[in-house]
Design a binder for these strands. Structure first.
Lengths: 250, 250
DNA sequence: GCCGTCAAGTCTACAGCGTAGATTTTAAGC
DNA sequence: GCTTAAAATCTACGCTGTAGACTTGACGGC
């Protein structure tokens, strides 16, 4: 019988860590993360399920390994001479490419990725770009958190809308059609006056808003509501800008 | 034996949809979403696992029901007179309260929530606030997407860091200590010049940047890199602002 | 009052999951 | 040459979601 037992000849091992992770990524990219079971992965490798455990301690380790494999593809063009806005754009684009290449892995990219050295390098680029604004460290960290949170939120939306191929706003528009227009007047008005050719995968528009805000505050804007026509005068803002978690309504 | 069979007396039903969802939420809040199995839920209700299926078609329906239950708690103060920035803040705060009250449900709040009528009402508030900036519909949708994506990214970070109680930047700082400072010079410099008392749960600072950017563009800023000292002069920006998905590096 | 239909709950069972433990064979180290 | 350890397999356990059959009692129509 073709039943194989015992340790294989040298160099004839059936499995290596690299192959396991590559195959796992293939399954995830092709059929989603829920299709990636240890048994399925083993079948794909033509091997007993338990064989994998000689190379990786458990399923979580496989997923972490796959995530690090993907993050290792992250390559940033270190253009130290460019304006900081372009550097942030470059950071965002690199992350965007990763997410669009592996949308089914998005959740793990966001959660597991934090521990990856490749991500540290990427953050070095982001922080260096933001440091060139001249803002104090505290503001830089806040701005970086803002950029990262936005990109993660956008990435998650991409990952979730993989099936429906709709952006968040697009899904809202569809849902809206089930109700009479007067029920949600603003939404109805705005979406009826909107062109058809929006592309939800874009990240530029959001970043444009975001970088404008960072630039404003870096220039000396106080982040309050003061610099808006018809807004509050400087000093009478009642939105806490440096508060310590006071979010109550009262 | 205490073995119960058959249809119960009128009014003596052991289960109602409402109780099932409330108990499921209790499990999720207390022990995380992975603890919420149908068997566990049934045990908590003192009932056979299959009994649940007479009230909800499957586990996914339970989770959707729980999500809608939580979203139904979302109540926005409709202060139509306030400046639009404060209205956006109010929207963000309401969402924040929801997330902090049920961090273990974050992923479902983001993904399943889209179909909930309560979320439509919340979006009506957000869009109405942004419409008061005077921006054209296309910009309003972009700004709303930005706000929603940021809040979702922030919420996901809260959900993921529930165990470690660390913010994204805080986790970065910890990871950074494993390497010599000269390896990631900018990160090292910034984090060493940073106070200890950062509170990662805050959303105000990010929103301050974000609203500043929206206000700038609403005032007539073009969203390019032009309005930054030392940046590009107006018109020579090579960052696409109205592009159609052209994200290539070349 | 009676009877068919349906609803609520139980019980059994199945396929799939992650993985612990024992077993077999062979490569590598002393 | 002997010992140790590694690679792969096999079996088995407890867990999961849920399909299907069964029991009992409520309810509507006659």
């Amino acid at each position: 019988m073709g039943r194989k037992l015992g340790r294989p000849r040298a160099g004839k091992e059936l499995l290596i860590r690299e192959q396991i992770l590559a195959t796992a990524l293939q399954i995830i990219d092709g059929e989603g993360i829920q299709a990636m079971s240890m048994r399925r992965l083993a079948a794909e490798l033509g091997v007993d399920p338990m064989a994998i455990y000689h190379h990786l301690p458990n399923k979580e380790a496989v997923l972490v390994g796959v995530t690090e494999l993907v993050f290792s593809e992250l390559r940033l063009p270190a253009q130290a001479e460019a304006p900081w806005q372009q550097q942030v754009y470059a950071f965002a684009r690199a992350y965007r490419e990763l997410v669009l290449a592996h949308p089914n892995l998005v959740l793990h990219l966001i959660s597991v990725g934090t521990g990856s050295p490749a991500l540290l390098a990427a953050n070095e680029v982001l922080y260096a770009a933001l440091a060139r604004t001249g803002m104090p460290p505290r503001r830089i960290v806040q701005a970086a958190d803002l950029v990262v949170d936005y990109l993660n939120g956008w990435a998650l939306a991409v990952g979730l809308s993989q099936n429906s191929k709709l952006g968040a706003a697009q899904g809202l528009a569809t849902l809206l059609q089930q109700y009479p227009p007067e029920h949600y007047p603003t939404l109805s008005r705005i979406f009826s006056n909107l062109g058809e050719d929006e592309h939800p995968g874009s990240i530029e528009e959001g970043l444009a808003f975001l970088l404008a805000g960072i630039a404003w505050i870096a220039q000396g804007g106080d982040g309050s509501l003061a610099h808006q026509q018809g807004g509050l005068a400087r000093g009478e803002s009642n939105v806490p800008t440096g508060g310590r978690g006071d979010m109550s309504f009262g």
